[in-house]
Amino acid sequence: MSDAMKERLWIGAFVLVTLAPMLILFIGPRPEGREFWRELSVALGFAGLSLMGMQFIPTARLPFLASVFPMDTLYTFHRRISIAGFTLALAHPLILFIGNPYTLRLLNFTNAPWRARAAVLSLLLFILLVASSVWRKDFKIRYERWRTIHGVFAVVAAALVLYHIFMVNHYLAHPLQRGYWVLVAATWAAATLYVRVLRPLQLLRRPYRVIEVRPERGEAWTLALAPDGHAGMRFMAGQFAWLTARTSPFSFRDNPFSFNSSTEVHDRLEFTIKELGDFTRTVKELQPGEKVYVDGPFGTFDIDQHEAPGYVMIAGGIGSVPVLSILRTMADRKDTRPVVFFYGNPDWESVTYREDLETLQKRMNLKVVHLLENPPAGWQGETGYITREILERHLPADHAQWQYFICGPIPMIAAMEKKLVAMGVSLHYIHTENYEMA
């Protein structure tokens, strides 16, 4: 089955599962109707919960989803459905209170029934979940701590909501209605069990050892790993993995990094990591022989799934890591198709892989177009951001048939997509990776 077909099937399943509780409301025997606003409030509550119930799936790193959809798209989708679901769910109590102020007594925690207490508690947890995710950096919550809180709050809030709807039991009389929510709860439990127990156990059984840590230009470090007691993993050029170092995989302190190495090398995995946060600053301290756990590979940012007469790579700074993996793989395979790599950096000295790219240009049909924000004196190359004129200057006439791979922060990706589409490139030929996913 083609990836496009799988994509359609998963999207179809998602639409069906999300709309199912609403459709079941229409099918099932309904209790006698009540006033419009109360019924709307209940329906929106179910709608919100149905969307929020989908949140556990995209971030569970399920291999069958991750092979079809880009992981950063799945994470963005997770964030968006969370906010949309939360907004709909919030409309449930708000409409209820406005339509019937008498129901405000349910907020009185001391004498409200448990079904109402559960709802209030879950709502508070959802507010904390959304606020701590949207404003994590403003609240100065460390990423690792936030992830622990996020996981615990999400499971507790979901359990409280299920308790609420089963105890209120107004529209859950029909076996289809009960069955749907039991199935949804079982899926949440299964996803949580997979993420929190099964996957870490798998990782524990397949450790890797550090064999080298070497500095790169641009305050980055390349970490080389070798499988310890197993055959290692096969990845596709441009993919990435989550790394855990100096702690157990059960601590969930892993961070995503792209492979920089060739897929044709099987006994060694390499990642290049820029010093940006808590974990990335400790990479240089890792010693040969230390254990590292590698959860992956993930991602769809690879050329194997996108055949073309030529490729265009566009990266800013450390966004070049997956591009290097693609280039090294093509060189090892003696792939002679042309590649143009537009590579933006602050200055000439901080161009990560500068020398490696020079070597690669001798081994394959590669043209590197460096763009510098602060060029050195006498610089003959391009400067500033990538413009349409720069793209047109370096691309061949048949560029609309080529495939495009862009890795960088979201504003850069959005700007590039716009320019390429204006130049006649189909959106289907543009593949992106947001390197600020976490």
Binding site: I11, F14, R30, G33, R34, A47, T76, L427
Partner: peptide, 30 residues
């Protein structure tokens, strides 16, 4: 590319959920 599709898909789903909720409330309140 997929991000634009994902956003449109979500807008469609939310619109569908809200419309179904309104329809349901209307039917029940009649």
């Amino acid at each position: 590319m997929q991000d634009i599709y994902a956003r449109n898909l979500l807008i469609g789903i939310v619109a569908g959920l809200v419309l179904l909720s309104l329809l349901f409330a209307l039917i029940q309140s009649l």
